[in-house]
Amino acid sequence: MNKTSAAWLFLAPALLVLGVFFLLPVLAGLALSLTDYDLYALADFRNLRFVGLANYWMLLHRPLFWAALGHTLYFVAAGVPLSMLVSLAAALLLNSPLAGARALFRTALFAPVVTTLVAVAVIWRYLFNSQYGVVDFVLAHLGLPSIDWLGDPHWAMPMIILFAVWKNFGYNMIILLAGLRAIPPELYEAARIDGASVWRQFRHITLPALGPILLMTGILTVSGYFQLFAEPYVITEGGPLQSTVSVLYLMYQDGFKYWNMGTASAVAFLLFAVMFAVTAAMWRFGETRETVA
C-alpha cells in the first residue's frame, strides 16, 4: 500500500461521516428552504412544491421572525460584552501575583462551563422563581423591589443573559489567562520603573497584548450566543409573551412542532447569514485596528 492510498483510506471514515451527515444536509437544507415542505409532504413526497424564495419573502413579512431576531440580537449585544468583561476580570484576578489558592479558584470558576446546560437551567428556573426563589428573597432583604423574572417580559431576557454569563465566562477566562501569562514580565517591570500606574499598565501593555485573543474569543462567543436555544426552551419556554423566543427557538417550533420544514430551513439560513455578516464585520474591524496600531 503506498502513502497516497493509505492517506485516503485513513481519511475515508471521517470524510464519509462529515459528507453524509453534515455537508449533504447543509446543501439539502438550502434546497429545502426553497420548497413548501410541510406535514403533507412528510406524508407523501408528491405534495412537495418548489416555491423559490417565497419562504424568505414571507419571513421578512412575519412579525414573529423580526421579534425573534431582535431578542437574539439583544442577547448577543448584551450577553457577549458582559461575558467578556467577567472573563477578563476573572483572568486578571487569577493572574495577579497577589492571588492565593489559584488552582482551586480556577477550578471553581470554570465549573459552570462543564455542567450540563439543561440541568443548570433547571436550577436557574428555581433560583429565580418569584414565589420561593432565593434571588428575590435576597433582593427583598436588600430592600430592593422583587422582580417577577419568569413572568415579566422585560425581565425574562436579562435573566437568561445572567444565566449565560454565569455558565460561560469560565471558558474565555482560561484562554485569556493563557494570554496574560504569555506577556513578558519585563514589560511591566519597565513600566513600573517609569512610574506607570496599574491602570496605565493595563491600558498600554495588557490590553494591546491581549488584542488578538480578545478578538478571537469575542468572535467565537458571538457565534455561540447567536445559537441561543436551550436556555429559553428550558427556563422560559419562549415566554412570557414570546419575549424570549430566539431565532433557533423559532426554527425548532416551525420545523419540529408544526412541521413547516421549508420555512424552518429558511429561518436557519437567515440566521446563518446574519451570524456570518456580524462575525465577518468583527474580523474586518479587528484587522484594521491591528494594522493601525
Binding site: L18, F21, F22, L23, L24, P25, V26, A28, G29, L32, L42, S223, F226, Q227, F229, L248, M251, G255, F256, M261, A264, S265, A268, F269, L271, F272, M275, F276, T279
Partner: peptide, 18 residues
C-alpha cells in the same frame, strides 16, 4: 466549514434519518 452552524443541517438530517 466550521463557520456553518450545526443547526443549518438539522432539518434535512432529520428527514434523512427519517
Amino acid at each position: 466549514a466550521l463557520v456553518i452552524p450545526a443547526q443549518v443541517a438539522m432539518l434535512p438530517l432529520f428527514l434523512l434519518l427519517k
